[in-house]
Design a protein around this nucleic acid. Structure first.
Lengths: 193, 193
DNA sequence: ATATACACTGAATACTAATTCAATGAAAAT
DNA sequence: ATTTTCATTGAATTAGTATTCAGTGTATAT
């Protein structure tokens, strides 16, 4: 393995550790030292990989933004046509919630991205998080569901926003308490029906 | 007005200002100086009223805990018997959401209490926030609704928890964006139906 | 009218955590 | 085999805020 590859690997390890801690303890309650210890690595070395705590957060958020964008590219228009909006959302949630246990990466990332959009976090990270707009995407899906008569009436954008805010709330609750059982995705989609 | 009363009033002003800023900018992003400036008063004087930032937060949370408890005492058993669980929750949400605009106090308090329960905040405040358990209360209501056939099946406690997590998520979203329209409470209760 | 208490100020200090840095050793390149 | 590069360390420094404090003036009590 070349040196560059090793460095890249180490970098990834830091990003992953930071993601976990940022979600589990919160950004401000996570000390650079905590991350270093968890990786593990010396505190000073952290700054060989990221120039600041703020930049580290930014990189985590950017990774999340990339992931979300490529996830979206994987969704083809005919997929959308074949599956009903409610079933699509149920499926999405089911997958996300199942990650919570075994492979918390995606789950944590979802939670962090939501937090970056909302709560007090450095401005630049918020901007990046806001640049992937899940709400507008889903608004179209909601409108389609309304036309098909499977969703109730109302401002589709607002409904989409509430739906995701709701999901965010539940995900954060789960992130706090590892023992919490996952809810049935159908319940959450019930917000739109 | 006696000196003691004046002091009490000033104290309340600080608590209210802190509540607003903690919710709007987040606890860690709110400097003691920000609060002092907003009250307004000198930075040093803040410590004449509260011995630390942490204690200030704790007092705000305690105030919220008191409020919640007395709110609960106002609910008589016959009230519960007369109104259906779904209608009770819709009414509660309607009131809460309407506060968001004119009288943000209650609204902010709700958001802060939820954050104190979950996100990284000093341990003592979290304990106090956790001491008012809205989830267990509502679980009973959910169970009753299930018996009456107006709510779907499932673990009542988990459903209650998801309901409130959902509300929390939506409230936080609204706290972030003042221009966001309030959702229809019926949508949120749809999570249980 | 005088004395006392205390609300009040803002500059000085203390503290905590991020960040830097000089030194070290091991791997890669020559 | 030697040189060069660079990952690595942890103690020292810096930076940003919370917190303290020595005074000051004004409202209340006597």
């Amino acid at each position: 393995m070349t040196r560059k590859e090793q460095k890249e690997e180490r970098r990834k390890a830091i990003l992953m550790t930071a993601l976990t801690l940022f979600v589990e303890k919160g950004y401000y309650d996570t000390r650079i030292t905590d991350i270093a210890e968890a990786v593990p690595m010396s505190t000073g070395l952290m700054f060989h990989y990221f120039k600041s705590k703020e930049e580290l957060l930014l990189e985590v958020v950017k990774m999340g933004a990339e992931g979300t964008k490529s996830l979206r590219k994987g969704i083809t228009p005919d997929m959308m046509a074949q599956v009903q909006p409610d079933q699509y959302l149920v499926g999405f949630l089911r997958k996300m919630l199942s990650y919570a246990k075994d492979e918390p990466w995606v789950f944590h990332m979802f939670v962090l991205m939501g937090q970056a959009r909302r709560t007090g976090m450095p401005e630049e990270s918020r901007q990046v998080a806001l640049s992937v707009d899940i709400v507008d995407d889903t608004a179209g899906l909601v409108a389609k569901g309304q036309k098909d008569g499977i969703f109730h009436g109302g401002d589709a954008k607002l409904m989409s926003r509430c739906f995701w805010a709701s999901v965010q709330g539940i995900m954060e609750e789960m992130a706090m308490d590892k023992d919490m059982k996952a809810p049935n995705p159908e319940w959450i989609v019930g917000l739109l029906r």
